[in-house]
């Protein structure tokens, strides 16, 4: 009984910590992105609210929450509100299978810093990553606007095509590791001492493309192409109802997928023990934020593909390359033993 209570407390604490950290980080990533984008364009970014503009997310949140709630005419009200949750929940659920560090011991119990240690973690990531498409699709349909609807259709087409490539790209890593469990994948990388990006550079590039596409980042952000679609599927949303969408898609989704990419290709928390007992956690965060930095860097540099090119690119180039890569990996694993 004592054991059960301990497990329950540990799970509750894990969920609370993950929720608090991810939502807080999501808010502060807006500050980070604005600052970063500013400096990339020789601007300064937010500087006025607080030192270095650090209180800007709070000011933004306050502003969004105090805005007048406006419902457009002819919307499907239930779906309109439900789409917000449908966008946010999968993005948060993604963090359930992110291992933030090596397992440690508290009071004689082994605790793994992951909310749900699933055997099919990577499959779960694919599922949740593309469940976010419902938020977009229903948001576009429910808001009774042509721009929003076109944006949501584009997003659905994007998700359907890039999900396949993402699966094949990650599958070659799963083949090497021999497991879909995130802990097993990281352990096998630590054991062999080589990160999988060395074996699988092509797969990593494909994964990166899919990461950008799934989270609606440039050069694949056709669903919110500002020049053509105003801002895509969330045109008709205002206030915090609008704020949820970029938070879920641009920040939480990107952060979670970067963490998964770290697990798959960069050896998770492996690294020299130079930060004492927390070195595993710090290495994991450093790698994740390095990837995030790269994603933002790409976002604020490159132009956007045309809508028709993006899907064509996925089916005609990325998918064959990923399948060839997968077959080659399978042969490699089979003959090496």
């Amino acid at each position: 009984m004592n054991d059960m209570i301990f497990t329950a407390i540990v799970i509750a604490v894990k969920i609370l910590v993950v929720l608090a950290v991810t939502l807080g980080l999501g808010a502060y990533l807006t500050w980070y992105e604005r600052k970063f984008a500013g400096h990339l364009q020789a601007r300064r970014g937010p500087t006025v609210v607080g030192p270095f503009g650090l209180l800007q997310p709070l000011a933004d949140g306050l502003k969004l929450m105090t805005k007048a709630p406006i419902l457009p005419k002819g919307i499907d009200t239930k779906l309109y509100y439900m789409a917000i949750m449908m966008a946010l929940v999968p993005a948060i659920m993604l963090f359930a299978v992110v291992p933030f560090g090596p397992s440690f011991k508290i009071m004689g119990h082994e605790v793994k810093p992951i909310v749900a240690n699933l055997n099919i973690a990577i499959l779960y990531v694919f599922a949740m990553g593309s469940m976010a498409a419902y938020g977009t699709l229903f948001a576009g349909w429910a808001s009774n606007s042509k721009y929003a609807f076109i944006g949501s259709l584009r997003k659905a087409a994007l998700i359907v095509s890039y999900e396949v490539v993402l699966g094949f790209a990650a599958l070659s890593v799963i083949l090497l590791a021999g497991s879909m469990n995130v802990f097993d994948i990281v352990d096998s990388q630590i054991k062999s001492g080589i990160w999988y990006i060395v074996y699988q550079p092509i797969s990593f590039v494909l994964f990166l493309f899919c990461l950008l596409a799934e989270s609606g980042r440039v050069p694949f952000d056709i669903q919110e192409a500002e020049a053509e679609l105003v801002t895509g599927y969330n045109v008709e949303y205002g206030g915090m109802k609008f704020g949820i969408f970029p938070l879920a898609e641009w920040y939480l989704n990107v952060l979670a997928l970067c963490a998964i990419a770290t697990v798959l290709y960069f050896g998770g928390w492996s690294g020299p023990h130079i930060f004492g007992p927390f070195s595993g956690f710090i290495w994991f965060l450093v790698k994740t934020f390095g990837l995030l930095f790269f994603v933002l860097w790409v976002h604020w540099t490159l132009p956007r593909y045309q809508a028709k090119d993006v899907v064509e690119f996925a089916w005609k180039y990325l998918l064959p390359i990923s399948i060839v890569n997968l077959v080659a990996t399978a042969f490699f694993v089979y003959f090496k033993g």
């Binding site: 970063f36 500013g38 400096h39 990339l40 364009q41 020789a42 601007r43 300064r44 500087t47 860097w297 790409v298 604020w300 540099t301 490159l302």
Partner: peptide, 21 residues
């Protein structure tokens, strides 16, 4: 071509901001 664009923005990142407050 991606890398060329990325180097340009990276140079900007290391530069001093040119805006006036």
């Amino acid at each position: 071509d991606f890398i060329k664009g990325l180097t340009i923005t990276m140079k900007n990142l290391l530069r001093k901001p040119i805006t006036t407050q």
